[in-house]
Each structure stands twice: as C-alpha cells, then as structure tokens.
Amino acid sequence: MRMKVISIPEYCLGCGLCEIYCAAQHDGFNGNVLKAYKTGQPDPRSSLIRSRPVSWFNTCMQCEEAPCLNACISGAIKRDRDGIIYIDENRCVQCYTCVMVCPYGHARPSSRSGRIMKCDLCRDSEGMPACVKHCPNGALKLWQGGEEQ
C-alpha cells in the first residue's frame, strides 16, 4: 500500500516544528530534539517551504513510478515492503542524480554533510511519522491509499 505525508497549506502555521522533529527522529537521536540540535548535526529529511503567508512541507510523494529509484546509479535508493522509498547510505555515492530527477525537488543534499536526504516516513520508529505526530495544527496527514486529497 502506498503511503505518504500530505501537507495541508490551509492550516500550516509555518512554525517549522515538522523539520525539527524530523531531524530529531533520524540519525539515531530517537526523537530527542535537544540532543539532536545541541550535540549533533541535525539533518531534516524534508524541508518546510515558507513564502508568507503560505507555507508547506515538501515531503516525498513516494511515487509509484519513482524517478529517483529508477535513476540511482548505485542502487542506494530502495523501496521496502511497505512501499516506502529510502536511501541505503552505505551504497550512496553522492552522485546527486536523484536530486536532478526528482520532479518535486524533494531529494536534496544536506548543506552540512553533502549526503542525500529524503523522507523515509520514519520507517525505523513506531507509530506515525514524527512530523505528523508533532504538527500542532493537524496540517500534516499520513495518507495510506484510498482517495487522494
């Protein structure tokens, strides 16, 4: 079943908590925002695009025919059993082909480390993706098949 996070700009406050909790959920920080930002190199996988008064969270569409998956030269971009497209960092050679082919401008290199970042729907942790769980206004939803909004 295809899943993805949907952003509802009508109710997005542009607070950026999605980015913060996204970074804290990855790289072994286990949701600890303080640790991620005070001791680590926080790398949000998705980014909040702010253009006041509108803002919107640019997350992965988890495309069925995923250009990044098809274009990856080292086989680092994979799809798991749940249909989630993720990056196997051990195989990534940072060629940035995915950055160029992503039609949504989602996959992008980290400004800190240069590695590729894309949303993996927090597949390594239980429950909802961190951004959905922590959005204070319900402006992010996890779409799990069915009718697209």
Partner: peptide, 13 residues
Amino acid sequence: QDRCIQCGVCVSQ
C-alpha cells in the same frame, strides 16, 4: 539558553 536551539518557533508564533 542550555535548551534553546534557535529554531525560531517562538519568533514566528
């Protein structure tokens, strides 16, 4: 200050 991560949520809100 030991806890502030300069995320700017307070400023925007």
